[in-house]
Amino acid sequence: MTATRAEVCVTACADAWRGDGEVLAAAMGVCSVLGARLARLTFEPDLLTTDGGPLLSREALPWGAEAGPGGVEGWLPFRDHLWLVLHGRRHVMMGASQLDRHGRSNISAVGDREQPRSQLLGVRGAPGNTLCNPTSYWIPKHSRRVFVEEVDMVSGVGAEDAYDLRRVVTDLAVLDLGGPDRTVRLLSVHPGVAEEEVHERTGFDLAVPEGGVGVTREPSAEELRVLREVLDPDGVREKEVPA
């Protein structure tokens, strides 16, 4: 079975939670949510995952499914979710409108503070997430608009201040904060992606590992089966990352 790019992204996201044990896998974005649930259904069975709302589901749910009768193992309304952020048993994978060399992210606004050129969401939970929890990022479209020299507003804190910035998964590559002075480093390119394309679509110089840039692993046959038959039979992932 040949995996699509979206499927490679899902397992690359899933790998972010590898080894985390009994923590909440908080995810935003299709491939990220599917990755958390796939990790739970395969190599990281102790993860806690949600229904996309305040319910902790007894089993990892298919995309869009409800927990249903007997399918709920816990309740995590927003107030308790925010408790959990400070408590720490949570690994979050967030999105970012901008991400810079130091791993600082912006989801707040672009441009002048008093009159932004583009008002985005606001900082949301990014300052707390990054300061208190292991944090990864899922960027569905790797571009110079996202990967900028310096973010306009630091929503998620950089690697120097963060609890633990783990990895950045994009539609092209997997990156981490292992570059000089904890800067963004290109770990692997997805199958079929040229290393040069990642550099071209990044607005700053990417560090690379001493041993060279790898190729992101392909999903296993079992992972593909779970993803295609159980978690996302409608192929929502392919809309987020078109082939």
Partner: peptide, 18 residues
């Protein structure tokens, strides 16, 4: 978004937990 981009309103922006 429009009100902010037109400079019409001030924004005190806190983290969700703050």
């Amino acid at each position: 978004r429009a009100a902010r981009q037109n400079g019409e309103i001030a924004f005190t922006e806190y983290d969700e937990g703050m």
